[in-house]
């Protein structure tokens, strides 16, 4: 078969499918809507995961160790200890936070500024913030660093802020799994919807299919328009999912920005990345094609011409 013939056949099948879908707009619309919503849900979860990791992104990878000194330890001694800490292997950065700086910061952000002004004495201790190197953040590395810091006689408490990071990562992990399960289930749903729609279409066109087979139409020829129908459903469903997502993001954007502002952040909701949009459309097309293929292969074989 020449390429021109091949192209002609495909063009005819594609246009035929498009025409038939356009001729029953309401039924087509409902099917596309169902597929669109089924595709929108995994996309929404994906966006939730990316936004959650992005919003917390500054913290998830960084574990800080806070070292609080006893009240009577002078800042000079603390600076000496900071130099010791910097010389330790596995330490990336050490910041000295003097009691005065800590108080100023607290006054600025806590909203208790006036009340704190009334204090005669600074209740906050001098402190160090020790950031471990990226390759020294395993639990055993952290435990060793914690023991080293706690052994200094001037130190009151050492606090490793890793537990909440682990929790956050675990939550994100659960979300990712929920996303995976939802994607698989809803993908199966799309297969079923397209498959069933194609099955009904095949039943409606039974007489026509018999005639086409009688004049020599192969199974592949008879199946082709149904495959195009499936792909058209999948791609327009993806388009609907994308639209639904854009609307949902538009609705949420304002309130998320507001929420972020209350936390003193400039955080803006991230929409789907180009790559995610590509996945959405590819997924829609593949699911539509596969659903139609399974259904058509199964049901067309049973239709043979009668005489």
């Amino acid at each position: 078969m020449s390429i021109a013939v091949y192209g002609t056949r495909h063009a005819q099948a594609f246009l035929g499918s498009l025409g038939r879908l356009a001729r029953s707009p309401f039924a087509t619309f409902l099917t596309v809507l169902v597929i669109g919503l089924a595709l929108a849900l995994p996309l929404a979860l994906q966006l939730l995961v990316t936004n959650a990791s992005r919003a917390t992104g500054g913290f998830t990878s960084a574990v800080d160790v806070s070292v609080y000194f006893k009240q009577n330890v002078a800042l000079a001694e603390v600076q000496q200890r900071a130099a010791n800490a910097r010389a330790q292997p596995g330490v990336a950065e050490v910041t000295v936070i003097s009691a005065d700086d800590a108080l100023k910061e607290f006054q600025k952000y806590s909203g208790f500024g006036a009340a704190l002004q009334a204090l005669e004495q600074n209740p906050l201790p001098n402190a160090l913030r020790v950031r471990p190197a990226a390759d020294a953040m395993s639990p055993s590395d952290l435990a060793r660093l914690e023991r080293y810091l706690a052994a200094w006689p001037e130190v009151d408490t050492v606090q490793v802020d890793s537990q909440w990071v682990e929790r956050l990562n675990a939550i994100l992990d659960v979300l990712k799994r929920v996303l995976l399960v939802a994607a698989v289930l809803l993908g199966a749903g799309v297969l079923a919807v397209v498959g069933n729609t194609v099955r009904l279409e095949i039943q409606n066109r039974r007489a026509e299919i018999e005639v086409v087979k009688l004049v020599g139409g192969s199974n592949a020829f008879v199946r082709r328009p149904f495959l195009y129908t499936g792909v058209i459903y999948g791609v327009t469903g993806a388009l609907v999912a994308w639209g639904v997502m854009a609307i949902a993001l538009g609705v949420l954007e304002g309130s998320v920005a507001n929420l972020a502002k209350l936390y003193g952040s400039q955080y803006a909701l991230a929409g789907p990345a180009a790559e995610e949009v590509l996945w959405l459309f590819a997924g829609g097309a593949v699911l539509g094609w596969l659903g139609a293929w399974i259904s058509a292969t199964r049901h067309l074989r049973r239709i043979e011409p009668r005489a």
């Binding site: 013939v5 086409v212 004049v215 020599g216 139409g217």
Partner: peptide, 11 residues
């Protein structure tokens, strides 16, 4: 035209 379309004959 059906048998010709099925056979992939040019338009």
């Amino acid at each position: 035209a059906l048998p010709l379309i099925v056979a992939g004959s040019p338009l």
